[in-house]
Amino acid sequence: MNGLLKSARRLRGTAGALARYRVMAFIVGTGLALLCFVGIPLQVIGGNKWPWTAVVAIVGPIHGIFYIVYLVACLDLAGRARFRTVQLLGMVCSGLVPGLAFYMERKVTERVRKLLAMGPDAPPGPAATIWTVLSGRTRRDAD
């Protein structure tokens, strides 16, 4: 985990986007599992009364904030690593189905590592990522 954070700070480009995505996938996957498998059962058991809803009330907003960051990281990685729309949708949905985030993180890492291993043979770089959208410039814009 510490190593992942360090590499997220150090790496740029697609490798950095992959590291950021992996960190966020881990956080979001853990948070969602905590909500669904601990928070909601406790809330149901306690009949929606205060001490029993504590986990949902605390973890819920934190998970919500991290999920937004996770979506940004997904968009960034999908733009850099030429993901198809379906794959991006899978990454988005993996923040909604508990446990899916960990599986998806493995698949995505496998795919992006293959792309990185191709070196100069890789498909050409991103036409647009969220950073080019937010900064208002377009890279490699064809027409």
């Binding site: 968009l75 991006l88 377009t138």
Partner: peptide
């Protein structure tokens, strides 16, 4: 609303992305 904004951003990004033809996987 933040999700809605991110949806627009993703739409813009995917429109401007050139999808890969060769399946390098």
């Amino acid at each position: 609303p933040i999700f809605a904004i991110l949806g627009v951003v993703a739409w813009w990004q995917l429109i401007h992305d050139v999808p890969t033809k060769a399946d390098f996987e």
